[in-house]
């Protein structure tokens, strides 16, 4: 039984690291800031959540497992809000969408209110 739990938790950690690899490859390959932000935020957040779930599975509902469980919603909220802030800031900073872009509704918005 103990072996099964250890194998399961290692499997969850391995899946998380696989997702992290996808996210980081996206960070290298994709052409502009917004696409990089997109791939990196999604994949790395879910990958890290999977690693923390692995910790929870390994130790059960003890002190360390509960800490991992608390970290998961915290990570979700902070990562998504940071992604919004970065996307908005880089648009207002003046970085244009990449060459492949086909559509931009945000450009005619009167956002310069500050």
């Amino acid at each position: 039984m103990a072996d099964i739990i250890i194998i399961l938790s290692t499997l969850l950690i391995a899946i998380g690291i696989l997702f992290n690899i996808f996210g980081c490859v996206g960070l290298l390959r994709l052409p502009d800031v917004y696409n990089r932000l997109q791939s990196a935020t999604k994949c790395v957040t879910l990958g890290t959540c999977s690693i923390l779930l692995g910790v929870l599975v390994r130790y059960g509902f003890a002190s360390i497992g509960i800490k991992a469980l608390v970290a998961i919603p915290l990570l979700f909220f902070t990562a998504t809000v940071a992604a919004h802030a970065l996307a908005k800031a880089s648009y207002r900073f003046g970085i244009k969408l990449g060459e492949k872009s086909v559509h931009d509704d945000y450009k005619d918005e009167d956002y310069d209110v500050s």
Binding site: F22, G23, V25, P31, L97, K100, S101, H103, D104
Partner: peptide
């Protein structure tokens, strides 16, 4: 979420990168 990750993985690992980005309202 899980679907989103496989979607990103497909777009990132595909050699031609099938992306058509833009901002919509």
């Amino acid at each position: 979420c899980i679907k989103a990750n496989f979607d990103v993985a497909y777009r990132v690992l595909h050699p031609k990168m099938p992306i058509k980005p833009g901002i919509v309202r």
